[in-house]
Each structure stands twice: as C-alpha cells, then as structure tokens.
Computed example of a mutant assay.
Amino acid sequence: MKIPVTLNGNKIILDAHADETLMKVLHKNGCTSVKSGCSGGFCGACTILLDDRPVASCKIPAGIVRNSDIVTLDYFVKTEEYITIISGFQKAGIKLCGYCTAGKVFSAYQIMKMPKMPTRQEITDYVKALSPCCTDLETLVNGIIYAIQISNKRQKRT
C-alpha cells in the first residue's frame, strides 16, 4: 500500500501494509527517534506528532494516516519549541535517557499550546498516563511549568 504523507516537512510516499503500525513504518524510513517500548501506548517511546497532536505511533495503523502531517523527534529537535522545552526540563533537573524522550517532549509541546496557563493539576492529569522510566511525575510537571514560563518570557520580548 502506498500512503502519501508529509513526514518531517517533506511530502513522501510511505510503503506499508495496511495493518502495519505507523511506528514500524517510520522506523523503516529512518526515523530513529521512534522507538519500540511497551507497545501499549503508555511509555512514550514511540510518540510522534500526527497532525500536530502527540500520539503513540505503536497504536496507529499505517493505513489510516493518508495525507497526514507527521513530525518525529528527529525533526522536532530543530525547532524553537524544542529548545524551550529542553530548557525547562534542564531547569527542573530532568535527565533525558533517550527512551521516552519523545513522549515527554511532545506532551510538553501539547500543554504549551493550551490557550491559557494550565494549572499544576491539569498538567499532572495530562502527563500521568505516561510512564517515563527516568523521571518522576512531579519533576516532569515542574519541567513543563518551567518551559511554559520560558516561552512566556520569550514572547514578551518579541
């Protein structure tokens, strides 16, 4: 099956079986940040942005992403949003092991796009489904709050 998509800013055709997971197809196409983890959508290792929303690519059949915009961490690391998120994570003392980085980063990205500042409880509720192996929930929430604060300061300067 030929599946037209925009992958990391480039229009391409993915070659996949309809029942193959998007995670496997992306990995075959050189997206090394898309990792296999729990295969249940909880660990964050396979998280991508699908039409600008974080999803677990291990749960998405490749056949349903026709004409979608897909962004992987391989590409996202080049953005200002990534730099802001990583700055917030560093301030909180988060050490990224590389395994569940995409889940943490893309969750933070989604939260930062909220129209108003979320409460600590709203952030906690959003990320508690993740089960990152290298960061406790409280530290992750702090990192996201710091990233939001850094983003707000940058926006005030421009």
Rank of each mutant, 00 (worst) to 15 (best):
L140A: 09
I86T: 07
M117F: 13
P118A: 04
G143P: 05
K95N: 12
Y75V: 00
G103F: 06
C38Y: 07
V25E: 00
K28Y: 05
V5H: 00
K104A: 10
C58P: 02
T32F: 14
I148A: 03
M112P: 05
T84H: 04
F106K: 03
C97G: 13
L73W: 02
Y126M: 09
Q90D: 14
L22A: 10
S151Y: 09
T79D: 01
K24C: 12
C100N: 09
G143Y: 00
D19G: 12
L22H: 06
I48N: 00
C31G: 02
L140G: 09
T21G: 07
C100K: 02
P54T: 07
T79I: 08
K116C: 09
G41N: 06
D15W: 02
C100M: 06
T135H: 02
D74A: 05
L137M: 15
I83W: 10
T32Y: 13
G9P: 05
K128N: 13
V34G: 01
G40W: 04
T119G: 09
T6D: 00
N8R: 04
T72R: 03
F42V: 13
E80K: 11
A147D: 03
I3W: 08
Q90T: 15
V141L: 10
S131K: 11
Q149N: 12
Q149S: 10
I123M: 02
H17K: 15
M114P: 10
K95A: 12
D69P: 07
M23H: 00
V71E: 02
P115V: 14
F42G: 08
V25F: 00
V77T: 11
G143S: 05
K104I: 15
A18D: 09
V127N: 01
K24N: 14
I111V: 15
N10E: 15
S131H: 12
L96V: 14
G30F: 04
Y99E: 03
D136L: 13
S87Q: 14
I123D: 05
K128M: 13
E81G: 07
H27I: 00
G63C: 08
T135P: 02
G98M: 09
K113E: 08
K28S: 10
I111L: 08
V141E: 00
H17P: 03
Q149D: 15
I86Q: 10
G103L: 04
T101P: 06
V77I: 14
N142G: 08
D136H: 14
I12V: 15
T139C: 06
T124N: 12
A18E: 12
C58L: 02
R66W: 04
Y75R: 11
C31H: 01
G63F: 09
T79Q: 05
R154M: 14
A56L: 10
C58H: 00
P54E: 03
G63I: 09
Y99N: 11
K128S: 10
T101G: 03
Y126Q: 08
